[in-house]
Computed example of a mutant assay.
Amino acid sequence: MVRKVTDVTGMDFVDVTAQEGATLFDLWSPACAPCAALSPILDDLARDFADDLRICKANVAADTTLGEHFSVRSLPTLSLYRDGAEVDRVIGFRSRAQLTAWIESLL
């Protein structure tokens, strides 16, 4: 299976967090340089973990209610959900190796 990063809005975000399985959410903004640097890494991870993980992105600049709802104070914010519950969150840019290790520790 080839999986790609999916863009979501506020309503989609709520629906996806309730799904079974693991989902990684990237809360980002177009004005955030670390967010832009993270984007191709997430594309790679979507392919690497295609069988085990969905990766979704939500632009908090376009949908400010998401940032408020999830108490986002810094970008990028990555939140991993499993079976509808948040299991961990990291803030700031992480390398591909760091993110791979983090994801593997949570799956």
Results as ranks from 00 to 15, higher is better:
34 P>W: 07
48 D>H: 07
66 L>A: 09
5 V>Q: 08
67 G>M: 04
49 F>D: 04
18 A>I: 00
88 D>F: 07
30 P>C: 08
75 L>W: 11
89 R>V: 15
89 R>T: 14
94 R>T: 01
55 I>E: 02
105 S>F: 11
31 A>E: 15
45 L>F: 05
25 F>G: 02
97 A>T: 13
47 R>Y: 13
51 D>A: 14
91 I>T: 14
74 S>G: 09
1 M>N: 13
24 L>W: 03
29 S>C: 12
12 D>Y: 00
104 E>V: 12
51 D>I: 05
6 T>I: 14
10 G>I: 00
11 M>N: 14
36 A>D: 06
100 T>H: 04
57 K>R: 07
41 I>Q: 06
19 Q>D: 14
88 D>K: 06
25 F>T: 04
49 F>H: 06
69 H>I: 14
75 L>D: 08
41 I>C: 10
72 V>W: 01
104 E>K: 03
31 A>P: 11
60 V>S: 01
17 T>P: 09
55 I>Q: 07
38 L>Q: 06
30 P>I: 04
27 L>Q: 02
75 L>H: 06
43 D>S: 11
5 V>Y: 10
30 P>M: 09
90 V>M: 10
107 L>C: 03
86 E>C: 05
58 A>K: 02
102 W>Y: 09
1 M>T: 09
6 T>F: 10
29 S>D: 11
26 D>V: 00
55 I>L: 03
84 G>R: 01
1 M>C: 13
6 T>E: 14
54 R>S: 15
47 R>P: 05
93 F>N: 05
44 D>N: 14
10 G>T: 04
60 V>W: 00
53 L>H: 02
70 F>L: 15
70 F>V: 12
90 V>R: 14
77 T>D: 10
13 F>E: 13
29 S>H: 01
79 S>R: 07
91 I>Q: 06
59 N>Q: 04
9 T>A: 13
7 D>M: 12
92 G>T: 02
13 F>W: 12
59 N>G: 09
8 V>H: 01
65 T>F: 11
106 L>F: 05
75 L>N: 11
77 T>R: 00
74 S>H: 10
51 D>F: 05
104 E>N: 09
45 L>W: 03
29 S>N: 11
27 L>G: 05
70 F>E: 09
21 G>H: 09
89 R>Y: 07
44 D>F: 03
89 R>D: 05
35 C>M: 02
51 D>W: 05
91 I>G: 08
37 A>D: 15
21 G>C: 06
4 K>C: 08
78 L>H: 11
60 V>E: 04
68 E>D: 13
72 V>K: 00
50 A>R: 04
43 D>G: 08
51 D>S: 14
20 E>G: 13
28 W>Q: 08
48 D>Y: 05
1 M>D: 11
8 V>Y: 04
66 L>I: 15
46 A>G: 05
95 S>F: 04
46 A>W: 02
31 A>F: 10
17 T>S: 13
16 V>S: 04
3 R>T: 14
94 R>M: 11
26 D>N: 11
2 V>P: 10
74 S>K: 03
99 L>S: 03
106 L>S: 14
34 P>Q: 10
36 A>P: 00
23 T>G: 08
